[in-house]
Design a protein around this nucleic acid. Structure first.
Length: 447
DNA sequence: GTAGGGTTAG
C-alpha cells in the first residue's frame, strides 16, 4: 500500500493555519526549520500563506531567505498580497517582475500566476498594466490556457468598460464553465443599469441553460439584479421560484438581491416576506430592508429592523447608519435619528463620516431644528461639503428662517461659485424680504 | 497532492 508523503501530512502544517498571532507562528516556523520541513516547497508555501495574513513583512523576509524560490512560491505570495493586502499591490507586481526578469529558464510564470494579478488590475492605478499582462499571457502560456486565466482576463476587460473585448474572449473559450458564464453575465450588469444589457442577461441565461451548465446562486444574483434594473417583477418572481425549484441556497447574497428586486419593483410586502423568511441574514440584508422601509415612508418599521439587528448582534456598517437616519428623516423621527448618529461613535466606536453628518444635518434641518443643524455643521471635524449647506438652506427656506438661509447660501456660493442655481436662490431670498437692491447686486454677481 | 477566476444593500 502506498503511504501518504509525510511532508504533506506533517502535523506542523495543520498547526500553521491555526496560528492567530505572529509569535505562535514563529514558534511553529522555528520547529519546521529544525526538522528540515522548511526546506520543502509545500510546507514553505503554507508558512508564506499563514505569515502573510498576519504580517506581510515577515512573509517577505522568509521569502527573501529562500534560495531559488519556485514559481509556486512566487504565486502563493503574489495572490496572498492581492487578497489580503490590497494596498500593497505594488509588492505583488514587483514579485511578478522578479519572475519575468530572473533570466532563469526554469522560472516562468504559469496559469496560477495571472488570475490574482488581473484581479489587482481592476482598480487604479493598476488598470494600465492589464493589457501588458495580457501580452505576457500570450507570450508565456500555451494558447489554450485554462479557464481561470481566461475568466480573469474577461473580467478585467469587462471591468474597464471593454465589454466587446470581454464578449470576444468569451467566444474563444471552449466549453465555458460555470464561473466563466457568471463572469460574462456579471459583465453585462456593470454599465449603470443599461436596460439593453440587462435584457441581454436574460438571453445569456437561456444560452447558458442550453449549454447544460447549471446556474448557481451567483448566476441567480446576477439574473435577479437584471430583473431589478428593468423593473421586471414577473421575471424576478420567476427567478425567485427558480431558486426554490432548483434547491439553490437562499443565502445572504440571493436574499439581498431578491429584497432589492422586490423593492425596485415597488413591492414592499413581497420584499418583507422574503426578508422575513431568509434562513440567514447579514448586514446587507438588513440594510436593504431598512432602506426599503425608509424609501416607502415607513420610518418606524425601518427603525424596528435596525433595533432587531442590534438585539441579534448583527454589526451595522456605514450604510446601515445612513439608511436608518434617512428613515428617521422622512417621517420626522428626529430624536431617534440623532440617537442613531450618536451610537456610531458611542456604541460602535466608529468615527462618523462626512456622509453621516450629511444625513444628520438633513434630519435636523427638515424638522426645523435649524440652530442644531448649523451647530453640527460648524462643529464637524472635517470640512463640510456643499450638500450639507444645501440641506440647511432647504430646511431654513421651508421653515422660513431667513437668517440661517442667508448663512447657508453664503457658504454655498463660496463652495460652488460656478453653480448658477445658488445665485437664483440668493436673489429669490432677497426678493422675498423685499430687498430689491440686493437682488440686482446678486444677479450681477451671478451673471 | 500544494496556488488561481464569478455574487448583495442607500
Amino acid at each position: 500500500m502506498k503511504s501518504a508523503n509525510p511532508i504533506f501530512t506533517h502535523p506542523a502544517i495543520k498547526l500553521l493555519s491555526k496560528c492567530k498571532t505572529l509569535n505562535t507562528l514563529k514558534q511553529v516556523h522555528g520547529h519546521m526549520i529544525t526538522t528540515g520541513l522548511a526546506l520543502h516547497t509545500y510546507p514553505l508555501s503554507k508558512i508564506l500563506l499563514s505569515s502573510s495574513v498576519l504580517e506581510l513583512t515577515y512573509a517577505h523576509t522568509i521569502f527573501d531567505h529562500i534560495q531559488n524560490p519556485t514559481v509556486f512560491l512566487f504565486n502563493t505570495l503574489i495572490s496572498s498580497v492581492i487578497t489580503n493586502h490590497r494596498c500593497q499591490t505594488h509588492l505583488a507586481f514587483s514579485l511578478y517582475n522578479r519572475i519575468i526578469l530572473s533570466g532563469d529558464d526554469k522560472l516562468k510564470p504559469n496559469c496560477f500566476t495571472y488570475p490574482s494579478l488581473f484581479k489587482a488590475c481592476r482598480s487604479q492605478p493598476w488598470v494600465q498594466y492589464g493589457s501588458v499582462l495580457h501580452a505576457h499571457v500570450l507570450k508565456f502560456l500555451e494558447p489554450e490556457c485554462d479557464h481561470f486565466v481566461q475568466a480573469s482576463l474577461l473580467n478585467f476587460y469587462a471591468n474597464c468598460g471593454k465589454l466587446g473585448v470581454a464578449r470576444y474572449l468569451f467566444e474563444q473559450i471552449n466549453k465555458p464553465d460555470l464561473a466563466t458564464w457568471n463572469s460574462l453575465l456579471t459583465a453585462h450588469t456593470r454599465n449603470d443599469a443599461d436596460s439593453c444589457l440587462s435584457s441581454e442577461v436574460f438571453r445569456l441565461f437561456n444560452e447558458m441553460q442550453k449549454s447544460l451548465v447549471r446556474p448557481n446562486e451567483i448566476t441567480l444574483v446576477v439574473l435577479i439584479g437584471a430583473c431589478a434594473d428593468l423593473g421586471a417583477l414577473y421575471h424576478g418572481m420567476w427567478a425567485h421560484a427558480y431558486v426554490i425549484r432548483h434547491c439553490l441556497k437562499l443565502n445572504c447574497y440571493v436574499g439581498t438581491s431578491l429584497i432589492s428586486m422586490y423593492l425596485k419593483c415597488g413591492c414592499l410586502g413581497l420584499a418583507y416576506q422574503t426578508f422575513d423568511k431568509l434562513p440567514q441574514r447579514d448586514t446587507s440584508c438588513y440594510n436593504a430592508m431598512i432602506g426599503g422601509f425608509a424609501i416607502h415612508g415607513y420610518g418606524q418599521k425601518a427603525l424596528q429592523i435596525y433595533e432587531k439587528m442590534r438585539i441579534l448582534g448583527v454589526l451595522p456598517d456605514n450604510v446601515t447608519f445612513n439608511v436608518s437616519m434617512f428613515a428617521c428623516s422622512g417621517v420626522g423621527l428626529v430624536d431617534e435619528g440623532c440617537k442613531v448618529f450618536e451610537s456610531i461613535k458611542e456604541v460602535y466606536g466608529i468615527e462618523p463620516t462626512l456622509e453621516h453628518y450629511g444625513y444628520l444635518v438633513d434630519l435636523l434641518a427638515r424638522a426645523g431644528r435649524l440652530q442644531d443643524a448649523e451647530k453640527r455643521i460648524k462643529e464637524m471635524p472635517m470640512k463640510p461639503k456643499a450638500t450639507l449647506w444645501r440641506s440647511l438652506f432647504a430646511g431654513a427656506r421651508i421653515h422660513g428662517n431667513v437668517a440661517i438661509e442667508k448663512v447657508a447660501l453664503k457658504h454655498l456660493l463660496e463652495l460652488e461659485p460656478e453653480t448658477s442655481d445658488n445665485y437664483v436662490f440668493f436673489s429669490n431670498m432677497y426678493a422675498r424680504v423685499n430687498k430689491w437692491e440686493y437682488v440686482n447686486r446678486v444677479k450681477k454677481a451671478g451673471s
